[in-house]
Design a protein around this nucleic acid. Structure first.
Lengths: 232, 232
DNA sequence: TGTACATCAGTGAACGCGCGTTCACTGATGTAC
DNA sequence: TGTACATCAGTGAACGCGCGTTCACTGATGTAC
């Protein structure tokens, strides 16, 4: 079980007047409560697959996690903190995954087309796995500035990694500004994925698109953009 | 003032056993109440620019519309019906606009590149204008099947128009399947616009992108995709 | 190894706030004669 | 043109439901001696 990236325990030194740290979670002291905490996180992510965060009540979460409402509040400063903690956990996982997946060395022997296809295909799966949570996060981001900034910083990291990867393949790319290209490709791919996250498989287009078709068209549009030959 | 596309008045004929019609609104009889209704719709759309639908209370809406809570409920079957009505109005407007904007004749003398740029640029503005409402609609679509289907039917219409336009320019396009191409281009463009709708100008990418850059890159990626020369 | 005590963890009924909805009433509009 | 009456429109205080949060209490764990 991957260790949780928790933010600041409750106990502080007397003279400690550091800036208002994010205190999303009351740090567990015993193993038992650590497990309760993780059960709560998992249960919530499960429940989010079927309903938005607002429609999932704290008592339901407690029930699903085989805990009580009281023990919930012993771990979290409130319902909002729960979503923050899930966000935290999700970002940690994404960051680690990205770092490995986008390392240029790994892709040295593969064509840009195949690289793109693998990437898109993997991302589609990854996003599907976390669909419920992602939907909840998308929704809260429309309001919560803090969550938005955390997501932005992850996105920024991903774009940097992507730019480095594209840089290592400069000869295969015709876009003049690689940083811009990385940024925009990221935008396109992730907004498509977000759309799927939000609306589910039957997205709000005419007909639902099979996964393979989707992956193929996404791959093609990225490639076409990166390798575009201007006709003017 | 464009006439509202309202759905079914309350009075029905005795033997009327038509399928469960959508009754989102209690049809106004006097002019006065018609105006109240529109004031309520406009006020809501205004309030939605700053807050999600859940955080806008009915009494606030009434206040903003210079009406009372009671008169609100005289027009709408409930708070949900209000959003449905706004959706209705929005879809009507979009449909009409699309029909005109995508008519092939209008674009006969323009290059595909310029056509695309104009379109993307217009859409960006249109979506910005309705940002608040769109955000609310995106959110409710994650839950409400009826709203989702209505949006889907609009999307379907737009894709059809787009396919017809692309068809009329077959010679400039290299994609084998034009229907698929229309569908996918629509998806890409609208998911990017949705992303902006949701997150505002400072979307969750590294740095916010200037409008002109955004329009330009969107234009280029669409063109590149439609005119792609396979290098294999 | 055993006992006492402190702290941590867990429980779930009760509380209270916010907000959607109702309802008894007043005022405005339109129509019949 | 005027009056009576019916219907429509508007008002806002009061209600009640749902759900997040609290709290007094019980049980578990760990530590000191």
């Amino acid at each position: 079980v991957p260790k949780l990236a928790l933010v600041q325990p409750t106990n502080r030194n007397p003279g400690d007047n550091s800036p208002p740290e994010l205190r999303w979670i009351r740090a567990p002291v015993q193993d038992r409560s650590q497990r309760t905490l993780e059960r709560i996180l998992d249960a919530t992510e499960l429940l989010l697959d079927n309903r938005p965060f607002d429609k999932v009540s704290v008592s339901e979460i407690a029930k699903e996690a085989k805990a009580s409402v009281g023990s919930f509040y012993a771990r979290f400063d409130g319902k909002a903190a729960l979503l923050y903690a899930l966000h935290e956990r999700y970002i940690e996982e994404s960051r680690a995954t990205t770092e490995k997946a986008l390392a240029p060395e790994q892709w040295a022997a593969v064509t840009l087309e195949e690289l793109t296809r693998q990437m898109v295909s993997f991302l589609l799966m990854f996003h599907r796995e976390h669909q419920g949570l992602r939907r909840a996060l998308v929704m809260i981001q429309t309001t919560d500035e803090q969550v938005r900034q955390r997501s932005a910083s992850l996105a920024s990291f991903v774009v940097d990694c992507l730019a480095r990867l594209l840089e290592s393949r400069r000869s295969e790319i015709r876009r003049p500004d690689i940083t811009l290209a990385a940024d925009f490709v990221h935008r396109v791919v992730f907004s498509l994925l977000d759309q799927i996250t939000i609306y589910g498989p039957n997205s709000p287009t005419s007909k639902p698109m099979a996964d393979e078709v989707l992956v193929e068209e996404m791959t093609q549009i990225c490639l076409a953009y990166l390798q575009q030959v201007r006709t003017t």
